[in-house]
Simulated scan of single mutants.
Amino acid sequence: MTNIAQLITRAQALCEERGVRLTSQRERVYEIIVQSKRAISAYDLLDVLRETEPQAKPPTVYRALDFLLSQGFVHKVESTNSFIACCLPGHAQHCSQLLICDSCGAVEECHADSLSTALQEKASQAGFAVSHHVVETHGTCGSCQVAKH
């Protein structure tokens, strides 16, 4: 089974466990995000969705994104106002750490438990209750570095 199929199957199972519906439109939007090679904006999602659903409108995409975000299936890349699939859907309270290439736009999610723990400890010391956190790191990916030389 491909990684794409695994993520979609995992999302379906989590929805069933949680008693929420992964409608065909939500699943299609999720599939588009999962298949995207880089973070994708809501309007780019809409363009791809319209290839199979010409009647799709912006609210369709935004409602699907709200659902996918609330279920932890996707992450919003705040700095570029775009979305990527979570590589660990269903993993409770993980800190999303994103490596964002400013040259090609590629976004890779990574996990450093020590960073997450350190952020949580600092927040606790400050009396701050974290609801979620995303760490975005901008730079140049390995492929773009090689291409420049």
Rank of each mutant, 00 (worst) to 15 (best):
7 L>I: 08
8 I>H: 13
8 I>V: 12
8 I>N: 11
9 T>V: 02
9 T>I: 02
9 T>C: 02
10 R>Y: 08
11 A>M: 07
11 A>L: 03
11 A>R: 09
11 A>W: 04
12 Q>R: 14
13 A>D: 11
14 L>C: 06
15 C>D: 10
15 C>W: 11
15 C>A: 13
17 E>L: 14
19 G>W: 12
19 G>Y: 07
20 V>S: 14
21 R>A: 06
22 L>D: 02
23 T>E: 09
24 S>N: 13
24 S>I: 10
24 S>G: 10
25 Q>D: 05
26 R>D: 00
27 E>D: 06
28 R>T: 00
28 R>G: 00
29 V>E: 05
29 V>H: 10
29 V>A: 12
30 Y>H: 14
30 Y>F: 15
30 Y>Q: 12
31 E>N: 09
32 I>L: 14
33 I>C: 07
33 I>W: 12
34 V>W: 06
34 V>H: 07
34 V>M: 13
35 Q>Y: 12
35 Q>S: 15
35 Q>H: 15
36 S>D: 05
37 K>L: 04
37 K>G: 00
38 R>M: 09
39 A>N: 05
39 A>R: 06
40 I>Y: 02
41 S>P: 11
41 S>F: 12
42 A>T: 03
42 A>C: 04
43 Y>G: 01
44 D>R: 14
47 D>I: 00
48 V>G: 02
48 V>C: 09
49 L>N: 08
50 R>G: 00
51 E>Y: 10
51 E>K: 13
52 T>W: 08
52 T>Y: 06
53 E>S: 08
54 P>S: 07
54 P>W: 12
54 P>E: 06
55 Q>V: 06
56 A>N: 11
56 A>I: 04
56 A>L: 08
56 A>R: 09
57 K>N: 07
58 P>Y: 02
58 P>G: 00
59 P>I: 04
60 T>E: 11
60 T>W: 08
61 V>R: 14
63 R>H: 03
63 R>C: 01
64 A>L: 14
64 A>V: 10
65 L>H: 11
65 L>F: 11
65 L>G: 10
65 L>R: 12
67 F>N: 04
67 F>P: 05
68 L>Y: 09
68 L>P: 04
71 Q>K: 09
72 G>Y: 02
73 F>S: 10
74 V>S: 13
74 V>K: 14
75 H>R: 15
75 H>Y: 13
75 H>P: 01
75 H>V: 05
76 K>Q: 14
76 K>A: 06
77 V>Y: 11
78 E>P: 01
78 E>I: 02
79 S>D: 03
79 S>V: 07
79 S>L: 11
80 T>W: 04
81 N>R: 15
